[in-house]
């Protein structure tokens, strides 16, 4: 049940990001919507379950994007590992912590993208996005990232309860 929910969420996030958001100019500098989902996998789901989704999502996003093959896989993998480790030191239901974690995810993604451009492109580095774009993304994620995380963890609990009721009957 929970796997179906996760697949559905992934699909909705990808479709919203690639198909609907481009129609609205307000979302021109929006962040990668899968980052909160990866953070959620890191802090709420087991490593075995998380790794499957991280690999799958990384490959799908690499396929849909025009970037270097494997770049999204790297971003999601390192973000997931970081979120997994963070849960050992912090309380995961703290709003400030979730805001920090999702914002850190955005910074990590941009740093990896910038690093790959710098390392693997033969031409001189002139990033196609500016610091303003990254700041916009961080502002967006600071307001909406924790909400997505709360929604995901709430839905997970509801589905768990619903499944328990279904099987107890």
């Amino acid at each position: 049940m929970i796997y179906c929910f996760h697949i559905l969420v992934c699909l909705c996030l990808i479709l919203f990001q690639t198909t609907l958001m481009p129609h609205f100019s307000i979302f021109n500098h929006f962040y990668d919507l899968l980052i909160p989902f990866i953070v959620y996998l890191g802090i709420h789901r087991s490593a075995r379950e998380g790794v499957i989704f991280v690999l799958l999502l990384g490959m799908i996003m690499d396929g849909l994007s025009g970037g270097l093959a494997g770049i999204y896989l790297s971003v999601y993998f390192w973000l997931w590992i970081s979120a997994l480790q963070m849960t050992q030191f912090f309380r995961v239901d703290n709003f400030l912590f979730l805001t920090f974690l999702t914002a850190a995810g955005i910074i990590l993604e941009n740093l990896i993208m910038l690093g790959s451009e710098a390392l693997f492109k033969s031409e001189s580095l002139s990033a196609s996005i500016t610091l303003n774009d990254v700041m916009c993304q961080i502002l967006w994620v600071a307001f909406t990232g924790p909400l997505i995380l709360f929604f995901l963890s709430y839905s997970q609990k509801r589905i768990g309860l619903w499944r328990d009721n279904l099987f107890s009957d």
Binding site: I14, Q17, T18, T19, P22, N28, H29, D32, L34, M61, L64, S65, G66, G67, N110, M113, E117, S128, I129, D133, Q137
Partner: peptide, 8 residues
């Protein structure tokens, strides 16, 4: 659809 990243 469009690229999911603002980098590409």
């Amino acid at each position: 659809s469009r690229d999911p990243s603002i980098w590409f």
